[in-house]
Amino acid sequence: MLHLTPEEWTAVALSLRVASVATAVSLPFGIAVAWLLARKDFPGKALLNAVIYLPLVLPPVVTGYLLLIVFGRRGIFGAWLADVGIVLSFRWTGAALACGVMAFPLLVGAIRLSIEAVDRKFEDAAATLGANRAWTLLTVTLPLALPGIIAGAVLAFARALGEFGATITFVSNIPGETQTISAAIYTLTQVPGGDAQALKLVGIAVAISLVALIVSEWFGRKAGARVHGV
């Protein structure tokens, strides 16, 4: 059986919390941005698209450093947020922010594709039946895009779970506060004799990711059947 130390259990629980919060909080923004990119033309669209995909191509340590500059205690937004009592740097909430930012391109990409795949003729039909833009989105477009939204959320969750570079740069590696599974594995591989413990955490990381993928596949298939009207 698994014999994990309390600190390691803490790291596992923290990772799950960070990844869940990162996914849940970024989901509404991800849907909004994906809808804008899929259905609207506006000045600056290409720039918005590039900025959203930036974390995918930047070295994670650069993203983490940028987060520190913007959301650190003396950062542009960080100082203002600290005044209203929200501190992100060196807290688990900051880890969630870093993971959310790193996972955002994957989330938006999957949802955007699924919204683009929704046939606009159903949106036209909804309009003739009295649905304004917002209701059409809520009752027709998003339900039809649901398989892609689920896939995007799981992808984002898995990415958030594995995030390392941006997180450790922005919120460091504090046991019990910001030390996720990845950071704990990294720490264990730095100390003599830590390999066995690291391997157990590796096993847990693989198991969580596998379960997430299987659950998403199952949900995706169910949602797909609904969408195809049978």
Partner: peptide, 20 residues
Amino acid sequence: KPAYRRRIGYVFQDGRLFPH
């Protein structure tokens, strides 16, 4: 007037029933 305020019943060639 936007389409959603026109109250016009539109029967499309392909039905366009909401599949979900």
